[in-house]
Structures are given as structure tokens and as C-alpha cells.
Measured scan of single mutants.
Amino acid sequence: CAFTHRPCSHPRLEGQEFCIKHILEDKNAPFKQCSYISTKNGKRCPNAAPKPEKKDGVSFCAEH
């Protein structure tokens, strides 16, 4: 993984420079932040999710 703030030993995603944990660092990657919002604390999930086809579409990470 090419994350520069600290060493990361996670494997890169195929065709990308970053792992799934750090892929949002790459603005050109086909990922965006997960659209899930917790009902308990109102916070948005920080994980990466595939970018949807539509610009305003929602997309969820593997956990959600």
C-alpha cells in the first residue's frame, strides 16, 4: 500500500496504489466513502465503497 503517513502492510487493491483501508486517499480511485449512517450515533461509516454509476447514488462498503 502506498499510504505515506505511516507504513501499511495491507495488500494493494488490484490496479490501485492503495489497500481498501486507504483507497480514499486516491481521489481518482473508483471508490467513495460508504453511505451508511449509524442510527445509534448519527456518524457516517468511514470505510470505502465502490463509486455508484450515478453521481448522486448511494454505495455501501462490504460491512453494510
Rank of each mutant, 00 (worst) to 15 (best):
C1P: 00
C1V: 00
C1N: 01
C1S: 03
A2Y: 04
A2L: 07
F3V: 03
F3P: 01
F3T: 11
F3C: 08
F3H: 14
F3S: 08
T4E: 03
T4H: 09
T4Y: 07
T4K: 02
T4M: 00
T4V: 02
H5M: 15
H5Y: 07
H5D: 09
H5Q: 15
H5V: 14
H5N: 05
R6W: 09
R6S: 13
P7N: 05
P7I: 10
P7R: 15
P7T: 08
P7L: 10
P7E: 12
P7C: 05
C8Y: 00
C8K: 01
C8Q: 00
S9N: 03
S9I: 15
S9D: 09
S9H: 09
S9K: 03
S9L: 09
H10K: 09
H10C: 15
H10S: 14
H10R: 12
H10L: 10
H10E: 14
P11D: 12
P11G: 08
P11S: 07
P11V: 05
P11I: 04
R12Q: 01
R12P: 07
R12L: 04
R12V: 12
R12N: 04
L13P: 00
L13T: 03
L13D: 02
E14W: 02
E14Q: 07
E14V: 10
E14T: 09
E14K: 04
G15W: 01
G15C: 02
G15P: 01
G15H: 04
Q16C: 05
Q16H: 05
E17A: 05
E17V: 10
F18M: 05
F18N: 01
F18R: 03
F18K: 02
C19R: 00
C19Y: 00
C19E: 00
I20S: 08
I20A: 13
I20H: 06
I20L: 13
I20G: 10
K21F: 15
K21V: 09
K21E: 11
K21D: 07
H22W: 00
H22L: 00
H22F: 00
I23A: 11
I23M: 05
I23F: 02
I23V: 09
L24Q: 07
L24N: 03
L24A: 08
E25R: 10
E25I: 06
E25P: 03
E25K: 04
E25W: 08
E25G: 12
D26P: 04
D26Q: 06
D26I: 12
K27T: 07
K27W: 05
N28T: 14
N28Y: 07
N28I: 05
P30K: 07
P30R: 05
P30N: 06
F31I: 02
F31L: 06
F31S: 06
K32C: 07
Q33G: 08
Q33V: 14
C34M: 01
C34A: 02
C34K: 02
C34N: 03
S35F: 15
S35Y: 09
S35N: 09
Y36P: 03
Y36T: 13
I37T: 15
I37Q: 14
I37V: 13
I37F: 15
S38R: 13
S38M: 07
S38G: 13
S38H: 10
S38T: 10
S38L: 12
T39L: 05
K40F: 14
K40E: 00
K40C: 15
K40V: 01
K40L: 15
N41Q: 10
N41Y: 03
N41G: 14
N41K: 15
G42S: 12
G42W: 04
G42M: 08
G42L: 09
G42P: 10
G42C: 10
K43M: 05
K43F: 06
K43E: 13
K43G: 08
K43W: 08
R44I: 14
R44E: 08
R44W: 09
C45N: 02
C45S: 03
C45M: 02
P46G: 14
P46M: 10
P46D: 07
P46V: 12
P46K: 15
N47K: 12
N47F: 15
N47V: 12
N47P: 02
A48L: 07
A48F: 05
A48T: 08
A49D: 03
A49N: 08
P50M: 05
P50T: 15
K51M: 10
K51R: 11
P52A: 12
P52G: 12
P52Y: 04
P52K: 08
P52R: 08
D56I: 05
D56C: 12
G57C: 03
G57D: 08
G57S: 03
V58A: 14
V58C: 15
V58P: 10
V58T: 10
V58W: 09
V58R: 11
V58K: 14
S59Y: 13
S59A: 13
S59T: 14
C61F: 01
C61M: 01
C61E: 02
A62R: 14
A62G: 11
A62F: 10
A62D: 11
A62Q: 13
E63L: 06
E63F: 10
E63N: 12
H64W: 00
H64L: 01
H64P: 02
H64A: 01
H64K: 02
H64F: 04
